[in-house]
Design a protein around this nucleic acid. Structure first.
Lengths: 347, 347
DNA sequence: TATAGCCGCTCAATCGATGCAGCAAGATTG
DNA sequence: CAATCTTGCTGCATCGATTGAGCGGCTATA
């Protein structure tokens, strides 16, 4: 099996295999890439070459292969984070779906840094990706412009862009339904109705704006007006939101709409520092889903983004490029919780 | 900026740029890859080429570049999952550290499927990775053998292999200390001492074995013997462990050592279905760390694996290849919790 | 027996970037 | 003023796999 000593820089090539097999590099190439039937190589030779390649532990040089071929079969994805259930699931399912389509996935994580996002897109274009999925990018259009020039198809995911097709959650409806759920629960549990707090996100972020719109709509439906100081958008960072909570003067009975589980980390940390006596006059709901957050006593429900549906649509757009830059909305999945246990949605 | 219409397959090459600039491809190449000073290209020409490349939105073809160059500067990583804080952090920090070293990271997720792990390793070798970090692999040695033959350096992370250097957590000490912590807490909170349950993982998994060894050691120190039926290793899957918990006959006062947050998902789901009346006569501690799990009432502490330290060591091994296949152990960080709030370790 | 057709393979150009060898023109030296 | 050096570039082979063109040798047909 191991022919190489592991220190030599020389990798086995089709020329080496051809020499060993006493045949030509073309024959070796076509046998190993599966085109040998069409090129009328005999079964006997094909078998011999395959066996030798196996024995020698040969691995094709994809740089050379891709360089020569017209299609690379590489698809790229940029995600802002891995260590978060939502983006983790996106990356993981994207890879699985790409492989199922016989594509090679390359995912890279850019930590919400605009310049790194752009540099990563550039690098992926340099790797000859056929399409690029840009997830939650701060400046999707900059990447879109660059990729269009390079002839690479881009699909924006999670956050929409204006120059390339986008697949996003229906943040408005998701937030409206989640807000309705929280309002219903405080009416039931506390016997009264009052406006919620909105915590987390950024005012200039598309998703935050849409969610806030859903939040306000649900309040209007309920005949409630939301005081300005109950809407607190100081970013997603847990630390920031923990500080926000520490300074917040929460009434005895109150409820919070938390914009993303990342912000929720800070919110619940602050809450737990305040009160250690079990569930009290507080309720919250949160956009995004996390298995442990779903078990917290005060949690009345989570709006889970439908990652599978989003990615199916993404690959659909990859396969059938649309005209222009449509924005496709995917409904969220509302997951109501009762006393730290998920309950099916009665609809 | 956008010269290409986005549909044409033809990408701009150094030959096109050379023609536009009225110079040679060699000049363009050396200007764009930074070797132009040493190749005595004038500042004037260098500037002109740079400007034209910028204007035309040129991106180098890395397949061609890597094919020709001696070093690829690509480093690969295989991880079993993304949507889990531990592996998510590993992937994210690996990418950041690789970029800081001017390397191109390619991470791929293989969902604990041995064949997929091997296929992914093969694919990464085909991409000419200079080194490959194999994380939590089911069959690290199979990959190690193959990569040695291809002349690719492998470093095993999280789970050790026998033919390549490995960096693993000190699972024994981490588990022993976590077990000690849980035992101390039940003595304090319940006023008595009894053996814990060990839940999650697999008997043939290196890490599970080591953690079990630490678990047993702490019990021996405390003069406790653990009944066999308190050690339940039915894998990591949440569903499996939820079922395990449902069938378990827990005494009024009991405590659990949970082997990984993935298993913990199932454990707490079952616990929450049982009792809705706040903290009771149950305590648990868990290997791995999760921000929400850290806030659960019954949680007395988590053994966090020191991802940064592990990766620093990994890159150290990449830079300075050791003799043989040493196994390097990185201490875990014990994070005690009191009433759903993290407390500093008094040491 | 000429000729057409098929079989099983090989040859050589090609993909785009790289880097060594080398060349022409000007500057410097003895 | 010839010899040498320096400057600023260009030419060309090369990396490894792919693929269209083509070539002997054999069989089938007229």
């Amino acid at each position: 099996m191991a022919e190489n000593d592991g220190t030599s820089a020389k990798r086995l090539t089709i020329y080496d295999l051809a020499q060993i097999a006493g045949t030509s590099p073309s024959a070796v190439s076509s046998v190993l890439n599966g085109t040998w039937k069409k090129r009328r190589i005999s079964d006997r030779l094909a078998e011999r070459i395959t066996r030798i390649a196996e024995e020698q532990g040969y691995a094709v040089n994809l740089q050379a292969s891709v360089l020569r071929r017209e299609r690379s079969r590489i698809v790229g994805m940029i995600v802002p984070k891995y260590d978060n259930r939502y983006f983790g699931a996106i990356a993981e399912q994207f890879e699985a779906m790409a492989r199922a389509r016989d594509l090679f996935p390359v995912v890279t994580c850019t930590r919400r840094e605009a310049d790194l996002e752009f540099a990563a897109a550039r690098a992926l274009v340099s790797y000859q990706v056929e399409s690029l999925i840009v997830t939650g990018a701060t400046e999707p259009d900059r990447i879109g412009d660059f990729c269009r020039a390079a002839g690479v198809r881009v699909i924006n995911l999670d956050l929409p862009g204006s120059n390339m097709p986008s697949v996003v959650s229906d943040n408005f409806t998701g937030a409206r339904d989640l807000t309705r759920l929280i309002l219903t629960r405080i009416r039931r549990d506390f016997g009264k109705q009052f406006p919620l707090f909105f915590i987390g996100g950024r005012a200039y972020d598309h998703n935050t704006r849409e969610r806030l719109r859903g939040f306000m709509t649900a309040h209007q439906e309920a005949g409630l007006s939301v005081p300005e100081d109950r809407i607190i958008m100081h970013g997603y960072a847990p630390e920031k939101n923990e500080a926000v909570m520490d300074e917040l003067d929460l009434p005895d009975h109150s409820a919070i709409f938390v914009n993303s589980t990342i912000a929720l980390e800070g919110v619940v940390r602050a809450l737990h520092r305040r009160r250690h006596d079990g569930p009290t006059g507080l309720r919250f709901g949160c956009f995004d889903w996390d298995p442990f957050a779903a078990l917290m006593q005060e949690n009345v429900g989570m709006a889970q983004q439908d990652v599978s549906a989003m990615l199916l649509k993404v690959f659909d757009l990859v396969d059938h490029p649309p005209e222009g830059a449509p924005q496709i909305m995917i409904p969220c999945i509302l997951r109501p919780i009762e006393n730290g246990e998920e309950v099916p949605l009665r609809s």
